[in-house]
C-alpha cells in the first residue's frame, strides 16, 4: 500500500509535509490565539514577490522569499507599533504589492516559462533535496526561538499590555513573532502555496484548540493534527490524482468541521445530562 514511498519525490513530499506540520502547528497556535491570521495572509502574499525575484536573479526562490517575507513582517510590525498607520491598510497594500511585484519580476526574467501556479497553490511533489535542507534549517531556527522565548511569547499572546507593565520588550517581541510567521510561511509555501498557507496556519491549531486546556498541549496536539492532515491529504491526492495542496486544505477543513460538530454535540449532551440528573 505504501508503494508510493519508493519514489524519491514522494519521500521528499512526506518529509516536507512533516516539517510544515511541525512549523504550522507551533506558529499557527500563536497566529490563532493572537488573532493575526490576516497579518499572516499579508506576509504570505507579499512573499510572492520574493518568488518572482528569485527567478529574475536566478537563485533558489526560497532564499529570496525569506528576505521578502521578513521584510513584510518587519514593515507590518513597525507600522503597527511605531507609526500611526492603520494596520489593515498596511496589510492590504503589502498584500497586493507583493503579488504585483511577483508577476512583474517573472515577466522580466528571461528563459523558460515558470510554473507560477505551483507557487500559488503548492507543489509538494516538486520539493527538492535543497528545498528540504532550507526548510529544515528554518524549522530549527523557529523551534529554537520558540523554546527559548516560550514564556515571552505566552506573555505577549495572552496579555500584551500586562507584559508591557512587567517591563517586557513587547513591541520587539511582537515584531519577532511576525518574523517567525514569515519564516513559517517560507517553510509552507512549497507544500500548499502562497494562497493556501493561511489554511495550514489556522486549521490544525484551531482543531487542537478544541481539545486543549493549555498552550503546550495545544502546540503538540496541533503538530500531530497537522501531520495527520498533510499526510492524509497527500495520500488522497496521490490516489485520486488531485492537486496535492488543495486536497490537503479540503481534507483539513472537513476534519475541522467534524471535530467542531463532535465538540458541540458533546457539550449539548453534557448540558442535557446535567439538567436530567
Amino acid at each position: 500500500m505504501f508503494d508510493f514511498l519508493g519514489y524519491e519525490f514522494m519521500q521528499n513530499a512526506f518529509l516536507a509535509g512533516i516539517l510544515a506540520s511541525v512549523i504550522c502547528g507551533t506558529i499557527g497556535v500563536y497566529v490563532v490565539l493572537k488573532r493575526i491570521v490576516f497579518i499572516s495572509g499579508g506576509i504570505a502574499h507579499f512573499s510572492f514577490g520574493g518568488i518572482g525575484f528569485g527567478y529574475l536573479v536566478g537563485v533558489n526562490p526560497m532564499l529570496t522569499t525569506i528576505l521578502f517575507s521578513l521584510g513584510a513582517a518587519v514593515s507590518i510590525g513597525v507600522s503597527k507599533k511605531k507609526v500611526n498607520l492603520q494596520e489593515d491598510t498596511t496589510i492590504g497594500i503589502l498584500w497586493s504589492i507583493g503579488m504585483a511585484l511577483g508577476i512583474i519580476f517573472v515577466g522580466l526574467s528571461k528563459g523558460y516559462a515558470i510554473d507560477l501556479f505551483s507557487y500559488l497553490f503548492g507543489s509538494i511533489l516538486a520539493v527538492s533535496r535543497q528545498d528540504l535542507y532550507i526548510m529544515a534549517a528554518l524549522s530549527l531556527i523557529i523551534i529554537s526561538v520558540v523554546s527559548v522565548l516560550y514564556k515571552e511569547l505566552l506573555l505577549i499572546t495572552f496579555d500584551e499590555e500586562f507584559g508591557n507593565v512587567q517591563g517586557a520588550p513587547t513591541d520587539a517581541l511582537y515584531i519577532l513573532l511576525l518574523c517567525l510567521v514569515a519564516l513559517s510561511v517560507v517553510v509552507m509555501i512549497k507544500v500548499v502555496g502562497v494562497i493556501l498557507v493561511i489554511a495550514l496556519l489556522t486549521i490544525p491549531a484551531s482543531t487542537s484548540r478544541l481539545f486543549s486546556h493549555n498552550l503546550r498541549r495545544m502546540i503538540s496536539l496541533s503538530i500531530a493534527i497537522g501531520a495527520f492532515y498533510t499526510s492524509s491529504g497527500l495520500v488522497i491526492s496521490y490516489y485520486a490524482n488531485l492537486a496535492s495542496g488543495a486536497t490537503i486544505v479540503i481534507f483539513s477543513s472537513a476534519m475541522f468541521l467534524l471535530a467542531t460538530l463532535y465538540k458541540e454535540m458533546k457539550a449539548r449532551k453534557e448540558r442535557r445530562d446535567m439538567l436530567g440528573s
Partner: peptide, 8 residues
C-alpha cells in the same frame, strides 16, 4: 482587556 477564551 484580558482574553477570556485562551488555553491557559
Amino acid at each position: 482587556d484580558v482574553p477570556q477564551n485562551f488555553p491557559i
